[in-house]
Design a protein around this nucleic acid. Structure first.
Length: 889
DNA sequence: TAGCTCACG
DNA sequence: ACGTACGTGAGCTAA
């Protein structure tokens, strides 16, 4: 086993910690008012590193002062930086104390930066056969990576790091650690305030170094480059490039007065740590050390919880639980397709059991109980539990009460995703929230104490049991029991199987598209820099605003809270004023595709080559689903460039097809139904093109007179507007007409569709009177703002009152279809699988020979899901990929 | 973490 | 006069 060396860039990590904890800065002060957030963050980072890397030697290097050999060579080095805020600088002495108390050495060297100390020691480590880990908040240190030295750069927060090895750098950046120095030489460094060569940024610098191998070789062949501004700049600024190279290069031979033998890691010094924690008022760290001085969150009723730790030996006790149990399986993370099981609890009445040992679940007695349909299960978030257990080859059966679903139906806007939080909203206090017990963000950690942890899991199952009857009573009082029993509960199972089925995604297709996009992005980037006359971060709206509106003096059409708006709407108005605008629009479009859809999707393809999204069944205020990790409900389709992403979504088996069916104008049909408007209903019953029919009416066309495309477009916008809770301003903005004209459209609409006009008025009244609105299935949304004094807030609630029954009823309809679908597919012995739901559309994969059957069956199930006063219409498509779908008739 | 931007229905 | 379309999720920047 090689010895291990840990080298930490003290200044940069403390600085990162300071910013990571910045929002909580005021919470972190000790008795004397000393700020401690950065010290705290630094310790979190340290613990995290030490949990994964057990060093034999360790050193934290600090910068010695403002002036170094670099500032002597280049006066402006690190110039222009803001003064370190006193809230941060006062923490450094304590960080050093902390380092010492943790049994590590710290070191600084006059005229040198921490980097150089680290570079020098890392080299010594390599030569002495150490495995070295360098930790920094600064990417520059990646130049120190070797086969035996890894550089961990802090990402988000403090504890998340990105590990740079030479291989990783080559893959990610395309250059070796040594070449990275030359890249910096060309591109410069804005934060260290050295310039690099004019007009060369990171992308160009990397490309040049990739092409030429090194700065030296580039200059050896610079004359052969084709004539360009870039070539001129390179030649003119050769001296600058070399000066920057010198500044960028971390020294590996700094005259340090210590050696590896001097930095042996001693391990934590308990007494010193306790004293320091007390001085800093770090209660949670003190608590972990068990000094008795801690102030844990009050345990409310969790202290009273009586339970037994379940083991192989006492499993037989479960047989006595009878035919109803509450059960909970604790996940390591929210994504249950990836999470591990951290523990579970089960029981009823006064018999409660819990364990951290997930393997017990698969043993005979428990597995049997879980799969036994006659034992009713009460739980929290059935879908998560189904998937977690399915991954253990256990098919959870007999689900009866899902606390999360029930609570969501009672009030969809509560948004409690945690048993404790949710219980508190129902006035049940005998449980802590996960956040109280585990912490959140960087500090989240399951309790090490088994009793504390298991007691919490038992508190969860007890909350489920105790809330079951009261919530059922409330659902029944609200006439929501059928909604729970016949729609949401069965739907959770359907969603679980769709998620587990997953959709196959061809990574190669995405990668190929990605490299083309990156190429185009690079081109656009250079052109934009040319047009702007300087380099800047195009992704930064702030910097872009400065370029467009200050430098290029374009007219700022709109402002946001924080500055100029640079949204598409604004940029489109500026087309023609400057060539840069169109390039920025294209850049934006491609950058979005590349980062969100190419890189984003590639990150979430599972080893089975599929993407397994999670549908959130209890999130939206209206009853729709949402989709996360990744969101498969917003894959591009409107523009061809983006739509091509869908080529990567393919059937999972050869000879299969993608089949899709979507409701046509479902929200307007629901509108026709709930408003009872005669004209709107007639238009649908007559099978009219609804937007054209609306146009005929609001523009008062004569029979036989043609609806021109512009009229239809405007009528379509009016229809949308109605569904959204219309305002003349919004409509005017959308279709680029005057507010007066929009107002006239709306007036004409309400005259032609008086039932809709009446509904709009009445629904707001209903909301005022009863405080909530409902969908067709009695899905409820409370609107406390409906009586607000502020015009704005009240108007919003009024539009919501209008929109929610429409959007929500449409959601009800497709949910019913989704529950019926697997049953109907099974009846016909079809292999077809339902994979995705996108609000009004269902996507399937199926063997080619089943397509004719599906084309009949799926629309039938969908259009008969609910009987409305108007027919439901379903359109179907089929193709080899999600991109290639062609309409069937 | 908030704010902006942009992808979808 | 107010200052707006409804419902979502994700990536990025700035601090």
């Amino acid at each position: 086993m090689p010895k291990k060396l840990l080298l930490i860039d003290g200044n940069s990590v403390v600085f990162r910690a300071f910013f990571a904890m910045h929002t909580q800065m005021e919470r972190f002060t000790n008795q004397e008012g000393l700020h401690t957030a950065a010290i705290y963050g630094f310790k979190l980072m340290l613990d995290h590193i030490l949990a994964n890397f057990e060093p034999d030697a360790a050193l934290v290097a600090f910068d010695a002062g403002k002036t170094t050999f670099r500032t002597k060579k280049f006066e402006d080095y690190k110039g222009g930086r803001d003064k370190t805020p006193s809230e941060l600088s006062e923490q450094f002495p304590y960080v050093r104390k902390l380092v010492e108390a943790c049994g590590m050495h710290s070191y600084e060297l006059k005229d040198y930066e921490a980097d150089d100390i680290i570079g020098t020691l890392a080299k010594q480590g390599d030569e002495a056969g150490y495995e070295t880990l360098i930790v920094s908040g600064d990417r520059d240190l990646t130049q120190l990576a070797t086969d035996h030295t890894t550089v961990a750069v802090t990402k988000k927060g403090v504890t998340q790091t990105e590990h740079f090895t030479p291989a990783y750098m080559l893959k990610k950046l395309g250059v070796t650690p040594t070449q990275f120095i030359d890249v910096k030489a060309l591109m410069g460094d804005t934060s260290d305030n050295y310039p690099g060569v004019t007009k060369i940024g990171e992308k160009t610098a990397i490309n040049l170094i990739k092409e030429y191998g090194s700065l030296d070789n580039l200059y050896a062949h610079v004359d052969e480059m084709k004539k360009s501004k870039r070539k001129e700049n390179l030649i003119n600024e050769k001296a600058i490039a070399y000066q920057c190279q010198d500044l960028a290069r971390i020294r590996r031979d700094a005259p340090i007065a210590i050696s590896l033998a001097d930095v042996i890691y001693q391990g934590p010094q308990t007494d010193a740590l306790v004293a320091l924690y007390q001085e800093l008022n770090f209660k949670s760290f003190l608590a972990k050390m068990g000094t008795g001085d801690e102030e844990l969150p009050t345990q409310t009723g969790e202290d009273e919880v009586k339970f037994q730790v379940l083991t192989k030996e006492n499993l037989s006790a479960l047989a006595k639980l009878g035919d109803r149990v509450a059960i909970h399986i604790e996940q390591s993370e929210a994504n249950y397709h990836l999470a591990t099981i951290k523990g579970f609890a089960i029981g009823n009445g006064d018999q409660w059991y819990a364990s951290r040992d997930a393997s017990l679940l698969t043993t005979g007695p428990i597995k049997h109980l879980l799969e036994n349909n006659h034992v009713k299960k009460d739980l929290f978030n059935a879908k998560a539990q189904i998937v977690m257990l399915h991954r253990q080859k256990i098919e959870l059966s007999g689900i009866d009460f899902d606390l999360l679903l029930a609570s969501y139906l009672l009030n969809p806007t509560l948004n409690a995703n945690d048993v404790g939080e949710l219980a508190h909203t129902h006035d049940y206090q005998e449980i802590l929230t996960d956040e109280d017990l585990y912490g959140k963000g960087v500090k989240r950690q399951l309790p090490e104490d088994e009793q504390v942890f298991l007691r919490h899991l038992v508190a969860k199952v007890q909350a489920v049991e105790n809330l079951r009857q009261p919530l059922i009573d409330q659902l029944q009082a609200n006439e929501q029991w059928p909604l729970y029993e016949e729609i949401e509960r069965p739907l959770s199972r359907v969603l679980a199987s769709m998620e587990m089925q997953g959709i196959k995604v061809n990574a190669k297709t995405l990668e190929e598209m990605g490299s083309k996009l990156v190429e185009r992005l690079n081109e656009l980037e250079s052109e934009i820099y040319q047009d702007a006359g300087q380099e800047f971060n195009i992704n930064s709206t702030k910097q872009l605003g400065v370029i467009l509106f200050d430098e290029l003096k374009l007219r700022p059409i709109k402002k946001t809270k924080t500055g100029y708006s640079t949204s598409v709407a604004v940029l489109e108005k500026l087309i023609g004023k400057h060539p840069i605008i169109e390039k920025i629009l294209e850049y934006r479009q491609i950058a979005k595709l590349q980062s969100t859809y190419i890189a984003g999707l590639l990150k979430v393809i599972h080893p089975d080559s599929k993407i397994h999204t999670r549908y959130l069944q209890t999130l939206t205020a209206t009853g729709r689903l949402s989709s996360v990790d990744p969101n498969l409900q917003n894959i591009p389709v409107r523009l061809e460039e983006g739509k091509r992403i869908r080529k990567a979504f393919v059937p999972s088996q050869p000879g299969w097809k993608i089949f899709s069916a979507d409701y046509s104008q479902v929200e307007l049909r629901v509108l026709a139904h709930v408003t009872g408007d005669h004209n709107l209903q007639q238009d649908f019953i007559n099978g009219e093109d609804i937007h054209a029919a609306t146009a005929r009416r609001i523009f008062h066309l004569l029979p036989g007179e043609k609806v021109d495309p512009n009229m239809r477009r405007q009528a379509k916008a009016v229809n949308f507007g109605i569904v959204y809770g219309i305002s003349d301003f919004g409509l005017a903005q959308n279709i680029h007409v005057s507010r007066k004209q929009a107002h006239d459209f709306i007036e004409a609409y309400f005259e032609e569709f008086p039932g809709v006009a009446k509904y709009v008025k009445e629904i707001v009244e209903v909301a005022r009177k009863q405080g909530y609105v409902e969908t067709i299935t009695h899905r409820r949304r409370y609107l406390p703002d409906i009586n607000a004094k502020s015009f704005n807030i009240r108007s919003f609630a009024e539009r919501t009152a209008m929109n929610t029954p429409i959007q929500g009823s449409a959601a009800d309809i497709i949910k019913i279809a989704m529950i019926k679908m697997p049953k109907e597919l099974a009846k016909q012995h079809l292999k077809a699988k339902m994979l995705l739901q996108i609000h009004d559309e269902l996507v399937f994969e199926a063997p080619e020979e089943e397509i004719p059957v599906l084309a009949e069956l799926v629309p039938k199930v969908m259009d008969s899901a609910m009987e409305l006063a108007v027919p439901l219409k379903v359109e179907k498509k089929v193709g080899d990929t999600w991109y290639d779908l062609k309409k069937l008739d």
